[in-house]
């Protein structure tokens, strides 16, 4: 399996902006997971972030919270998600990255979690409530299992902090584009572009921007400042409402012009 960084650099070399959609596993039923993943891949996604529902998602805004509640009410479990991902493992060509809150990983068991990631073809993990200071809870097991650890940097991170976080980063850097939780926004934070420039300057892996991106204009405006975008709430909403053509046209905004 090629590393996430390798997959991404191939696309960057084709002058393509990276596009990583986020979906909530089990929203609309577990049977939909494979279908949605393959649809997003066909649309041109560079990788897919698969969210695992949690009862108390403090980093998420209303859209993803609602999707998580729908998923939990449908009875979604981490094991079911792994089973589904394992089934479609050989049909997919792009990396799968899990976005999961730490308590779900901790209670599952960190070693067991890494083992299941490997078996189901999960290449990377994002845990929004594990900052640099607490990484050693999960990174030794991830490293041993060859599952990549994706770090987030935030607008509030200092220069020294950005250097610390980009040093020995794996996969890509997830640059959080605003203060607050996930969710659609109409305006970008005033410090966004200088922030992204300093992250790009420090990082040896691709830099992707997430939080609040929902239109082709957002995507095009960000092109000079990063390697790609992560789109969560908008995709989650469109999948929920079955507005597939909106997803297609947003992803097309990342294609070379």
């Amino acid at each position: 399996m090629k590393s996430i960084q390798h997959c991404f650099e191939e696309k960057i070399n084709q002058n393509k902006q990276l596009f990583v959609p986020y979906i909530m596993a089990g929203d609309g039923g577990m049977d939909r997971l494979e279908e949605d993943l393959l649809f997003l891949e066909r649309c041109g996604a560079s990788a897919i972030e698969v969210g695992i529902p949690f009862s108390d998602p403090v980093a998420d805004g209303p859209t993803i919270q609602a999707a998580g509640i729908r998923s939990l009410e449908a009875g979604t479990t981490l094991d079911q998600v792994f089973t589904q991902l394992k089934k479609s493992k050989h049909k997919r060509k792009i990396p799968i990255i899990l976005m999961i809150y730490v308590n779900v990983v901790y209670v599952y068991g960190i070693e067991a979690f890494v083992q299941s990631c490997k078996e189901s073809g999960v290449q990377g993990v994002i845990i929004p409530d594990v900052p640099f200071e607490e990484e050693d809870l999960v990174t030794p097991a991830l490293k041993q299992g060859g599952v990549e650890w994706i770090r987030l940097v935030a607008l509030t991170s200092s220069k020294e902090r950005i250097n610390q976080l980009t040093k020995e980063a794996e996969g890509f850097i997830y640059a959080v584009s605003d203060t607050g939780t996930t969710g659609v926004r109409t305006e970008q934070h005033k410090d966004l572009y200088p922030f992204l420039q300093s992250v790009q300057a420090a990082s040896s892996v691709p830099v992707l921007v997430g939080f609040g991106i929902s239109t082709g204009d957002h995507v095009r405006a960000l092109r000079p400042y990063c390697d790609g975008v992560i789109v969560g709430s908008a995709i989650v909403e469109w999948l929920h409402e079955k507005k597939y053509e909106d997803i297609q046209s947003l992803i097309q905004a990342t294609f070379p012009t």
Partner: peptide, 12 residues
């Protein structure tokens, strides 16, 4: 204990 929070809150 510890400090299990999003990166955004670390500086605060």
């Amino acid at each position: 204990g510890g400090r299990f929070v999003p990166e955004l809150l670390i500086p605060a």
